[in-house]
Every structure is written in C-alpha cells, then in structure tokens.
Amino acid sequence: MSNLIVKERDIVIPGDILAEGMDYLPGDNTYREGDKIFSKILGLTGVAGRVIRITPLSGPYVPKVGDKIIGKVTDMTMTSFRVDTGTAYSAMLNIRDATTRFVRSDEDMSRILNIGEYIVVKITKVTSQNLIDLSMKEPGLHKVIGGRIIKINSQKVPRVIGKQGSMINLIKNKTGCNITVGQNGFVWIKGTPENELLVTKAIKLIEEKSHQEGLTEKVDAFLGDIKAPEGSVVTEE
C-alpha cells in the first residue's frame, strides 16, 4: 500500500520523505531509496499522476537546449566567441552561428562581435560536462545595444515573466521600456533612464517577494500611474 506523505505545493527540505511504497515515481530533484522517495532540494512539491517532482525555490541556473539567455562575450578564438553565461560554465558561439552573412576567413572577427558586448542567444547543445553551444541565427536573437543589464536569480525568471507574459507586459506597457529576460537570470532593460531605474526596482521587488500571492497587483501599485513616454514602442512577449 503506497501512501503520499506530502501535499501539492508543500515546502520540502532536503531529506524529507515524500512518499512510501512503489506506486509513486521519483521525478526531478527527488530520489528513491528502498521503498521511500526523498526530496533532494529545498522547493515546492508537484504531483502529476504517479510522478512526484520538486520545483526548486532557489539555486543555480541549469542550461537547457532551447533556452533564450543573455551572455557576455569574454574571449575570441580562431572561429568562435566564448560567452559568459553567469553560471559556472562558459558557452561557445561559433562564428557560423553568430551571423547569417558570409564571413571571409581573413575577416576581423571583432567586426561581428567584440569582447565585453552582451548578446541575446539561444542554447543549441549542452553536453554532460555542461559544455554549451549557442546560436544567434534566429529571429529575436541579437546583440544588446544600449540600455542596462541586471542580474536576478534564475529561479525567479518565471515570476518576472508571469503567466503568458502578464507581468512583463504590464511593466513594458506602463514604462515604455523594452525588456528582454534571459532564462539564466540576465535582464536587459532599454528605455528612458528614469524608467529603466524604475523597472530595475520593480524587478528587484518581484525577486524579493516572488513566493507571495497577488504579485502582479503589487507591482501595478508599485509602478503607480506613470505614463509611457510619447512615441515609445514596446514589443509584446
């Protein structure tokens, strides 16, 4: 007879027993020992059918194929750029994936990207040793020009974006700033300097109160009734 010890969306700590018996299966961030399933991380439980998984409440960014991230070019080799991803692992962006145009073999690579520049990229490959390959050849992937970059905890990224982008679109429409959120926790904000500062504060607020309810209303109240500057165009998420 199997029995589930935790409820949906319970806070569990490492080593907590989640379920007894073989009818349940260990999902993400859990492990089985004997006939019990244990938690491996501090997080919230989720039960989907027979699978128990845990959504972490904190922790490092784990690179996944298909994620859109923001990185910083830190080095150049003969054929590629090394990109800092804000994690323990740097990524490689091959020059063929950096631009759609033809690059001559004797061309100066810094004409395409330069050291110190930020880029919005997509992860195309991750190996078991966490070596990361990137691409910049899809629509919406580009070099970061102007604005500012801030860093937040990557586990809070879903809250900053909100359901179907509700949170991010609220901030965008109110302040007239363009905001790009990378899954690794880097956020690019571009607008008027005052509003960029306001957005920074709003995002820090979300990060701080991420586990509370009614966050969109709180952010709405925080931004007050400011108007987006005349002629500012924001792209919807």
């Binding site: 490492p14 080593g15 491996k40 991380i41 501090l42 490092p60």
Partner: peptide, 11 residues
C-alpha cells in the same frame, strides 16, 4: 547549502 538550492540527499 539547502538555502542555496544545492542538491542534497539529506540534512
């Protein structure tokens, strides 16, 4: 360590 979200089997 638990607060940092590091995977741990136990406390």
């Amino acid at each position: 360590l638990a607060d940092a979200g590091i995977p741990m089997k136990d406390m």
